[in-house]
């Protein structure tokens, strides 16, 4: 092999080494952070929140009593709507967008909608013979 050819091979080896280094660097640099745990925690957190919310006493009456009243007469939802807004402001992170739904017999009887995309959690409960469900969507 002539001297010029050998030098070319040497240069090629260095270029290949540089490329390999670059690929390794890029691989680690652009590796996406895992969101599975964060999503699971978010889902668990909102389920717990709903579970706790259903038990809560709001201005001397239970949430379930409000839900029953709200399913019969939509004007009875005003206090509940207002208090749920306050509760989420106090319990969720500052600036966290959410959507909350209270469902009775597959009908939305109370809706507080701030966003449409996110992890949804639901918690069903019964009150005075009826089947209710609360849903919370936490958006990122």
């Amino acid at each position: 092999m002539k001297r010029g050819q050998m030098e070319m091979v040497g240069l090629l080896v260095i270029v290949i080494l540089l490329l390999v280094l670059g690929v390794i660097f890029l691989k680690f640099l652009v590796a996406p952070a895992s969101t599975t745990l964060a999503d699971s925690r978010s889902s668990l957190e909102s389920t717990r929140l709903l579970q706790a919310l259903v038990l809560t006493t709001i201005q001397g009456k239970s949430f379930q009593e409000y839900a029953v009243a709200c399913s019969g007469d939509s004007t009875a939802c005003t206090v509940l709507r207002q208090e749920i807004g306050t509760i989420f402001t106090l319990l969720l992170k500052k600036g966290q967008k959410y959507s909350f739904y209270l469902i009775y017999n597959d009908q939305n009887i109370l809706r507080l909608e701030q966003c449409t995309l996110g992890v949804v959690s639901s918690y069903p409960f019964t009150a005075i013979g009826g089947f209710y469900e609360v849903q919370l969507r936490l958006c990122s």
Partner: peptide, 16 residues
Amino acid sequence: STVVSLYYPEQDLYTL
């Protein structure tokens, strides 16, 4: 941290 329901048996009251 996590949200919990707090029960006051003296007043039969649930808070958050």
